[in-house]
Structures are given as C-alpha cells and as structure tokens.
C-alpha cells in the first residue's frame, strides 16, 4: 500500500467516503443488536429475580 493506492487515481474522496461510510454503517448495525440482546437478558433476569424475592 502506498500513496498511489490511497490516491485512487484522483478519486480518493469519492472512493474512500463510500467505503468508509459503508464500513461505519455495517459495523454499527452489527454491534448494536448484540449489545441490546445482552441488555434485554439482563433486564429480564433482574425482573425475574425481583419477583422471586418479593414472593
């Protein structure tokens, strides 16, 4: 990889903007549901635990 590669024949802005934006959107959409799933499991566990203690 060298400067010539990153220059993309003068189209660097258009090419890297496209790839960068795609990477950000795909990575964010991959990690958010994984985090949400953990959060939901924790919340349900806490609720179930709470009702057990009360009864």
């Amino acid at each position: 990889m060298d400067a010539q590669f990153f220059a993309m024949g003068g189209y660097a802005f258009f090419v890297w903007f496209s790839y960068g934006l795609s990477a950000i959107v795909l990575l964010a959409n991959a990690f958010l549901p994984a985090r949400k799933e953990k959060m939901l499991l924790n919340r349900i566990a806490q609720r179930v635990h709470g009702t057990k203690e009360n009864s």
């Binding site: 953990k38 939901l40 499991l41 924790n42 919340r43 349900i44 566990a45 806490q46 179930v48 635990h49």
Partner: peptide
C-alpha cells in the same frame, strides 16, 4: 423459557 434463559445468561 425466556425467563430461564435470562437467569442463565443475564447479570442480575
């Protein structure tokens, strides 16, 4: 089954 799974995997 969801409650069971949550107690297994979730952090209380």
């Amino acid at each position: 089954w969801v409650k069971e799974r949550a107690l297994e995997k979730g952090v209380v």
